[in-house]
Amino acid sequence: MQLDWIYGLVGGGIIGLAAAIFLLFNARIMGASGIIGGLIDGSGKSDWTERALLIAGLFLAPALGALVMGGSETNITGNYGVIIAAGLLVGVGTRLANGCTSGHGVCGISRLSLRGIVATGFYIVAGGLTVVIFKHVLGVI
């Protein structure tokens, strides 16, 4: 538990390094929802190979990492109704807002973008209230 924040800082640093490389080399914003969403709704056709390869790395590297570590757990809820609702909300919400934790959070806040800061404020407050209501009041998650 005491080591968790060090892993957080190191892992976060690697995420930031990845975003920095994407910006400085390819002049692109490393926003997960934009990269995935552009492939899904067809708006990212012109550079689909870059998007697909980024997603391939995003899937394969932690898959390999988890194997080396002897497995990993997401501890996601077993309630499929909650999972489906959550997935739909994340999918619609991130595309409506044009960004998620990586795009608005990491890439936006680091350049002091007003949109990034406001978006991050809203999704953190909404997420916090949701956890409080669904965990402590309703006991669903």
Partner: peptide, 28 residues
């Protein structure tokens, strides 16, 4: 931006996953 981020936050709170980690954790 406001509506989308609020909806996203609700889903993020419900499941604990956002788009990047959703792909990164698919194998396990």
């Amino acid at each position: 931006l406001v509506i989308g981020s609020t909806l996203f936050g609700m889903g993020w709170g419900l499941a604990g996953l956002c788009p990047g980690p959703a792909i990164a954790s698919l194998s396990f």
